[in-house]
């Protein structure tokens, strides 16, 4: 091969930047949706009402045994069919990510909820709070706080996972890099650059998690 050609990267920075914004935006929305749905799933699993907890458990185990790419394919196929009209690949991908990540977040939240001591729930009951009030004011705030490092770690994994929208050509950072790589014929530079960008973002994220862990331990 010839020399490294860095101009191909600098010339396409705006295009790559747009892709990166889409990746980050998709990550953020999926984290929020995943945590909300995941928390509901965790509450359902711990509800003690058998039909509800079995359904939630079945959903979580089903999702956790299939690859994300297959889930993305599923929703690209299903969402337009169910709605009767196409809604754009971004929303199909977003729905796939929220439903997929919710299964993983629900396991984290379940552990978080179980880490809150039973006495707290009893105290809530004895002061006359109802189920939702206990969850809202007593259990969930503590569950979240205990699980923040793991939630952030899962967020980093989710950010890496968003690169898989490549399989349906949604223009995230990975797809954008790949488009530039192919049109310019500079595969080596572009893929190494993509690796560097992902590494810097994810490594900073994991350093932050390490700091959080240290702070929580003290």
């Amino acid at each position: 091969m010839g020399e490294f050609d860095f101009s191909v990267i600098t010339n396409s920075l705006p295009f790559l930047g747009q892709g990166l914004m889409l990746s980050l935006w998709l990550t953020l929305l999926s984290i929020i949706g995943g945590i909300v749905l995941g928390t509901l799933l965790a509450l359902a699993r711990l509800s003690g009402f058998a039909p509800l907890s079995l359904t939630a458990a079945a959903y979580v185990n089903l999702i956790r045994s299939v690859p994300l790419i297959l889930v993305i394919f599923w929703f690209y196929f299903l969402v337009p069919l169910a709605l009767g009209r196409p809604i754009g690949s971004f929303y199909s991908a977003l729905i796939a990510f929220v439903l997929f990540e919710a299964a993983y977040y629900s396991e984290i939240m379940r552990a978080g909820i179980q880490s809150v001591r039973k006495g707290q729930v009893h105290a809530g009951q004895s002061t006359g709070l109802n189920y939702w009030q206990i969850q809202r004011y007593v259990v969930l705030p503590q569950a979240f706080r205990n699980m923040i490092p793991i939630l952030v770690t899962q967020g980093i994994i989710l950010f890496q996972d968003t690169s898989l929208v490549f399989v349906v050509s949604l223009r995230d950072f990975m797809t954008a890099s790949s488009i530039v790589a192919r049109t310019e014929g500079r595969l080596v530079e572009m893929y190494l650059f993509a690796a560097l960008v992902y590494f810097v973002i994810c490594f900073s994220g994991s350093l932050y998690v390490r700091r959080l862990n240290k702070r929580m331990a003290t």
Partner: peptide, 22 residues
Amino acid sequence: ELFRNIPLLVQMFIWYFAIPEL
């Protein structure tokens, strides 16, 4: 740290497209 913080898809492409050139 290197292998964990780069998405598998990117690694796949590097092994497939970049390593034979490097």
